[in-house]
Simulated assay, not measured.
Amino acid sequence: MSAARDPIEIIHSKSGAKCTIYPYGAHLTSYVTSSGEELLFLSRDAILDGSRPIRGGIPLCFPQFGQPDRSMPQHGFLRNNYWGEVRGSRVDCDEHAGISMELSLVDAINARGGAWGDDTKYDVRCTYAVKIYANRFETSIVIDNLGEEEFRFQVLLHNYFLVRDGTALNGEVCNVIGLGGYNVHDKVSGERRVLDAENFAVTVPKDRIIDREYAPPSGVIDLDLSISAGPSRNLSLKASGTVDGIPVPVSGVVWNPHRDNAKAMIDFGDDQYLDMICVEPGLLTDVPPLGGGKVASFTQIVTCL
């Protein structure tokens, strides 16, 4: 593996689609379709020197989402480390272009907290693959437990989508459909309820933050969402995951910090909450432990319709 720290640009020669990946966090910060449309939001105040996680794009969350273990960094340690490029992984063929990045726990810093400390009993390797097509991208993370001890984990792809024309608070053109029947946990109010309308559109409130986790109902495994990200920008998001080859239910998170929280973040433009919506698939609930010698995988496909 190489240890380069400069951003990597991948171009699909046939279509002209392109993306940018920072080795710090294996962080996809940009995906531009063949028609020149940027799909990902990156804060104008994002810090890109490796001193803190990058604000925008697609941060990687593992082995926790949020900070249930306060002794470990928020969202785990994948986004706080430099990843190496897997030798020979770059591809540029007729169908797609892509690259793979890799991080082993033994090489990670900030991997502290309980059993994930400096003297960890775990031996874990994470491999992250990005593929770009003319009008879609795919991101996949594979988690290899190379040791003998099983461990519990969460994994999530923290997508920041760019909303056209600053319309994130306009529910007619910025919304998420496909979460009907899901169990909602509002992390701000603490409220828990079930969305009962199949075509219910989740929107960003005009007056407050939205930070909600949506757990699938019984029998629903994969996540399949339609996202409106401003006028005439419609996206499809599909996500699936497995642990030891067995499909695991995929949850979703919708987040927008709104005005006051945006102002409180040093790496987020005060008014940029109008330009983004986070729609984040993840394995968050009912995730079985990953046994020694076993593999977990998680994949999303985002298509510009």
Rank of each mutant, 00 (worst) to 15 (best):
G84Q: 04
A201E: 08
I54P: 03
V254R: 06
M1W: 04
F200P: 04
S13E: 12
G245E: 09
C19Y: 01
A239H: 04
P23M: 04
Q154I: 07
V184L: 00
V86S: 07
G190V: 05
Y160N: 10
V279H: 09
D244M: 03
I209V: 15
S104Q: 14
Q300Y: 00
D271V: 11
Y160A: 10
N261G: 08
R259Q: 10
I227N: 03
T242G: 08
A197S: 06
R136V: 02
D196G: 11
V106S: 15
G98D: 00
G36H: 14
G190I: 02
D207K: 13
D45T: 12
L146V: 07
I99L: 10
R55E: 13
S13Y: 04
S226A: 12
L274P: 08
R136P: 05
V86M: 05
E38G: 10
K294A: 15
L157G: 10
K14T: 14
L305T: 15
D275V: 12
H96W: 13
N159L: 04
V188R: 07
S218T: 15
L274E: 15
C278N: 02
P217F: 11
Q272C: 09
D123L: 08
D94S: 11
F151L: 07
Q154L: 11
L156E: 12
Y24Q: 00
V91M: 13
K263A: 15
P7M: 00
M72S: 11
E85T: 14
G282N: 11
R233H: 12
G88R: 03
E85I: 15
D260E: 12
D275R: 11
V130E: 08
S100K: 10
G117D: 14
I8G: 01
G171D: 04
S35W: 06
K263R: 15
V91K: 10
